[in-house]
Amino acid sequence: MGVTLDLSRAGAVTPVRPNLSGLTRPALAAALVDAGVASPEKARMRAVQAWRWIHHYGVTDFGRMTDIAKETRAALAEHFRLDRPEVVERQVSRDGTRKWLIRMAPGVEVETVYIPDVGRAGALCISSQVGCTLNCTFCHTGTQALVRNLTAAEIVAQVQVARDDLEEWPSPKEDRRLSNIVFMGMGEPLYNLDAVADAIDIIADNEGIAISRRRITVSTSGVIPEFQALGQRTQAMLAISLHATNDALRDVLVPLNRKYPIAELMAAVRAFPGLSNARRATFEYVMLKGVNDSPAEARALVQLLKAIPAKINLIPFNPWPGTDYQCSDWGTIEAFAAILNRAGFASPIRTPRGRDILAACGQLKSESEKLRASARRSTALPPDA
């Protein structure tokens, strides 16, 4: 006599309700139809209503959408969610910089930083991946292994968390404290372009968060095959994590250079959609003592960027535990900047911000990730160690 086991319920997984915060306008309308919340004829109207509540007013409760019928609100709550991810830790620097450790899911955490007095009012440095694969040798974030890409909802959630904390709902048109977005946090944005592009569409929408595309900057280490798509799909501003003027040095500092060397990178920048004197590319150049900070390097940088509409951000290196690099002396940085200025390039020296909370450029690395790594090392030791 055979025995048949009923496995129909084994390993059953409860479907996760999608977060409407990560859907573009067309995707939001389509989701309402697919869930039976709205008919095709009314989907656009319902999407407009929901969009404004989510992205203009910042609500996290469908019950607050008072211009939507009660029955429809109940259906929205049944099929979708609007909750924010968990803020595990919030730190405020002496200089006003704020850093949040945000848990998107168990073991999936990112750091997001708000920097006041950057751009028109203040900039939010957001992450596109959990961890990073690029292993840039001067970057603390690069020492954390890649866990996964973030979804569009998780990217947008970083903006929502910041605006919750800054008390900027509903979306202000004037006197906002958060005026600029920079994809310069954890990860390489062009390795997650679909989610980044959708998030930019959401963030830039005039009836929602309403941050202009010209105030959104995407920083890349040079994933050249995605440059055209980035420009065409997002119309965001381009920033290049450069840090060296020759392949031998950049191969060490930015290992991706071995795949996409400097000559190819410069050609791709020149061909970037919309590049002009009004929409210049930004080149980021971290100042490393005795490595890339000589007058000869400054002159080489001038030649490298000749005829490219560009500005150059000089970034004093932010030391982190375990690094062998040192920050260039201030006089050396000023002399470097003077050479660039005389050649006609705007070359501001970025003021280090948030150093006391490890929120400065290149320092983002989840503290809980470090604690988990420490725990793994402890459990790996034999009992009598």
Rank of each mutant, 00 (worst) to 15 (best):
K306A: 14
V88T: 14
V59P: 01
V161E: 13
R280F: 06
R103D: 11
C132E: 10
W100Q: 00
L124C: 05
P106G: 04
I315F: 12
K70N: 02
L124Y: 01
L190R: 04
Q326P: 00
P319D: 10
H56N: 09
T141F: 07
A31E: 07
D205S: 08
R73Y: 03
R353N: 03
I200H: 05
M237Y: 02
R250Q: 06
R52K: 13
R377I: 11
S276T: 10
R46D: 04
E207F: 10
L305N: 06
Q235T: 08
T351D: 05
I339M: 08
S241I: 07
V182G: 03
I224A: 07
A69R: 10
C136T: 09
C125E: 05
V302E: 03
R372S: 04
P15W: 15
I181P: 11
D83V: 15
N318A: 08
A197L: 08
V269H: 05
G331H: 15
R250N: 01
V33L: 09
A105F: 02
F345Q: 03
L23F: 15
E174M: 04
N246A: 01
P26C: 07
E297Y: 08
R98Q: 09
I211T: 02
K259N: 00
N19W: 07
R163Q: 10
S366W: 02
N292P: 01
I240R: 03
R353E: 01
A380W: 12
G344E: 06
L301H: 06
R163D: 08
M104W: 10
A296E: 15
F283H: 11
T66F: 04
S328K: 08
V130K: 00
D194E: 15
R103A: 15
R64E: 14
A47E: 09
R25V: 13
P321V: 15
V33P: 02
N313D: 12
I262A: 00
D198V: 04
D251L: 00
P172H: 03
N257C: 01
S378C: 06
L124K: 10
T143D: 09
S212W: 07
E334S: 05
V48S: 13
P225M: 05
H140F: 15
R84A: 13
D194T: 15
Q232A: 10
I200C: 02
E78F: 13
Q160E: 03
E71W: 04
Q232V: 06
L20G: 06
R250E: 12
I262D: 06
R94H: 14
R73K: 04
I308T: 13
P273I: 01
I115V: 15
L314A: 12
N292F: 07
L288A: 02
V110K: 02
S368V: 13
N192W: 13
M237H: 09
K370G: 11
I181A: 03
L150D: 03
G107K: 08
W53G: 07
E367A: 11
T332V: 15
G58E: 08
V302W: 04
L32N: 04
G142W: 12
K99T: 00
M1S: 08
R84P: 00
Q228Y: 11
A380N: 10
A380I: 07
P170C: 11
A380D: 14
I312N: 03
R250C: 00
P261G: 00
S374C: 02
L178I: 00
N318Y: 07
Q91T: 10
